[in-house]
């Protein structure tokens, strides 16, 4: 029991200290490596979409130039970079697409691939995912 309590305290301490650290440390945008890396991720992501028949189905009618520009702004802005997002809000953008839970996660896998190709470290990738995960509720199953 003593060992258990100690271990739990240890885990809690690690957990809390990492939360505190976050307040003082650099933005995710900086950890990613700035604007160039955001562009690289967006370009890789577009390549991933093109390779994936399920996800490409959603995009086949879209204007890729606009998508690239807005997604770069979006990532840059939400990771704490010096950009303004000028696109539409998440609900409006994904209205009528009826994106399933499964396809959403498929999209997440493509984003992970895109970040891997851009040599983004695992620990920075997770912080990126943490920023975008809460947006899922505005994106999936929109009739």
């Amino acid at each position: 029991m003593v060992i258990t309590v100690k271990t739990l305290i240890l885990f809690t301490a690690i957990f809390l200290s990492s939360c505190v650290n976050k307040l003082h440390s650099e933005s995710v945008y900086q950890s990613l490596g700035g604007y160039q890396k955001v562009e690289e991720i967006a370009d890789n992501y577009i390549l991933e979409i093109e390779k994936d028949p399920v996800i490409f189905e959603y995009f086949k009618e879209s204007d890729v130039e606009r998508y690239r520009a807005k997604v770069i702004e979006h990532i840059c802005h939400h990771t704490g970079g010096p950009c303004e997002y000028t696109g539409d809000d998440m609900q409006r953008v994904h209205d009528g697409m009826n994106i399933t839970e499964s396809d959403f996660n498929r999209g997440v896998d493509l984003l992970i691939n895109a970040m891997n190709t851009a040599d983004i470290p695992y620990r920075v990738q997770n912080r990126v995912l943490a920023i975008f995960a809460p947006m899922r509720k505005d994106i999936i199953y929109r009739p």
Partner: peptide, 10 residues
């Protein structure tokens, strides 16, 4: 918790 422990998922 994504990225919660020094960037690792917890």
């Amino acid at each position: 918790h994504l990225g919660a422990v020094g960037g690792y998922n917890f």
